[in-house]
């Protein structure tokens, strides 16, 4: 077997980096969706009405306990039959955001539970309206303490974006695959993709750990 081919590596690198941009774009948009939807789930799971809590809880559990890849296929193949067509990237972002929102919901829940009871009591003693209590008192404190946990899920989501290749999104993995299919050499592109993931994910996770330590004390 031929050993590592540097000139071929240099040849595929621009395509891989273009794929990296798509990967980062999907991660960023997916994160925004996951942060917002997760908050919606977390708040819905605290409403007094069982008729909201129960179905939301069931849907969240279902999404969390089934594979993202299959959910992506579902969105990719089923939505068009219902007359809804998105670009593959948009479908991928929706899939990622929806899947990870079930995790961020749990993160928010823990964050909200972590706000001391005295804060609720003080808000009650001041007769602050429920809405105001959430917006001005509880959520600012809850979200602050969940930033590292949310960050860790962004990293996890980043590492899951290669799944979008399966629904034809031209991310890093898809670029590597196409390069490999063209030249019958997969070693270089896929190794580079793997290394790029570590190169980005590892420092980011170090950052989150540092943040965790700082906010933890």
């Amino acid at each position: 077997m031929k050993t590592w081919d540097w000139s071929y590596t240099g040849h595929v690198l621009p395509d891989l980096l273009r794929g990296l941009l798509v990967t980062l774009e999907a991660t960023a948009l997916g994160s925004v969706l996951a942060f917002l939807l997760g908050l919606v789930w977390a708040l819905a799971l605290r409403t007094p009405t069982r008729w909201v809590r129960w179905p939301v809880g069931a849907v969240v559990e279902f999404i969390r306990n089934t594979p993202l890849l299959v959910q992506l296929f579902f969105l990719f193949y089923v939505l068009p039959t219902a007359g809804i067509t998105f670009s593959p990237l948009t479908t991928g972002v929706i899939g990622l955001g929806l899947h990870y929102s079930t995790y961020t919901a749990e993160v928010y829940r823990a964050g909200i539970d972590g706000v001391p009871v005295g804060q609720w009591e003080a808000a009650t003693a001041l007769s602050l309206p429920r809405r105001r209590t959430w917006i001005a008192v509880i959520l600012p404190q809850a979200i602050r303490r969940v930033v590292p946990a949310l960050g860790n899920y962004v990293i996890a989501m980043f590492k899951d974006t290669p799944m979008l290749a399966a629904i034809t999104v031209l991310d890093m993995l898809k670029q590597a695959e196409e390069a490999g299919a063209e030249s019958f050499r997969y070693t270089e592109p896929i190794t580079v993709v793997g290394l790029l993931f570590v190169l980005i994910a590892y420092p980011t996770s170090l950052l989150m750990r540092a943040l965790e330590r700082r906010l933890g004390n």
Binding site: P116, Q119, E121, A122, A125, A136, P140, Q141, R144
Partner: peptide, 14 residues
Amino acid sequence: IGMVFQQFNLFPNM
């Protein structure tokens, strides 16, 4: 009615 608590319960984010 107003209340002052043993643990103050000030809002730390404000």
